[in-house]
Design a protein around this nucleic acid. Structure first.
Lengths: 142, 142
DNA sequence: TTGGAATAATATCAACTAGAACTATCACAG
DNA sequence: CTGTGATAGTTCTAGTTGATATTATTCCAA
């Protein structure tokens, strides 16, 4: 294998890494789904609650959830119907809205966050390996 | 940080790794999507062609694509309509079908695989780092 | 000021996906 | 043999997602 930096990559490693990443993402997904089932929400709602650590706008939430704003609207609709969040006017920008958790939402979020932190798929690695993985991924996405 | 093996994980690392993995998956997705646009197929079709390295059954294809068999049916329908694959009877199992590439399909697949191998997001890492990443992910998914 | 470009949230629509139900076929115990 | 459960592929449906368009508001330069 001649070295062709930044043009081509070893096909075997490329395939392997893609597959492994995919499998890991699936595990993360299963984990979130399990928590969602336990607390009676959809996986997307669980992720939204996790990201609502403080009052933010719908756009900011979409950014944190890596999804389109239209999608955040959809999730927030249901969370609002269930009385877990409120859409309040933004103090300085009348276009935007401040998403805040209701007391019920706060309780639910605390529950969700606690459950997400337990039995995470990442526990399969030792602490120093977790660190190494984080650094490699950081280098990978710059 | 007291060590609580296999029960809980450092919340910061957990969040970081999740986000980074998500970003990397997005890059992989963008890469596939770009190739798909270049050759005039959907991203799912591109992945299917990549996995059709030899004649396999629809179920096997679904396994390789990490999706449900019903989805494989959907993708194969369109690939067959475009004359890229054929569904032949399986030699020993009359329930199953052998998915084989047509000559057009072979040409298209060669093109797709070549494009996928070039400018992969993985090129952001040096060869030894790619290796290290692969081993960490292997340990992670066991 | 004020007119135009940019931005926040939403509505709408097309595409994709997972899951359940269904048919045909296989495998194996009795 | 035979019938019972498992499996391959398909169909159908509901839910989710991403892209575009729309409306209201903000920002900025002339």
């Amino acid at each position: 294998m001649t070295s062709r930096p930044d043009l081509s990559v070893d096909a075997q490693i490329d395939r392997d890494v893609c597959k492994l990443v995919h499998q890991f993402v699936q595990r993360l997904d299963v984990h979130v789904r399990r928590v969602a089932d336990e607390v009676g929400l959809t996986p997307t709602q669980v992720v939204a609650l996790r990201e609502l650590s403080e009052p933010i706008t719908a756009r900011e939430l979409a950014g944190r959830m890596f999804c389109e704003p239209s999608n955040a609207t959809f999730v927030l609709d249901r969370l609002e119907l269930q009385g877990l969040v409120q859409r309040l006017p933004h103090p300085t920008d009348r276009r935007a809205k401040r998403i805040v958790l209701t007391p019920d939402g706060e309780r639910c979020r605390a529950d969700v966050v606690a459950r997400l932190g337990t039995r995470s798929p990442l526990t399969a690695l030792a602490a120093d390996q977790q660190e190494a993985l984080r650094e490699l991924l950081r280098a990978l996405v710059q």
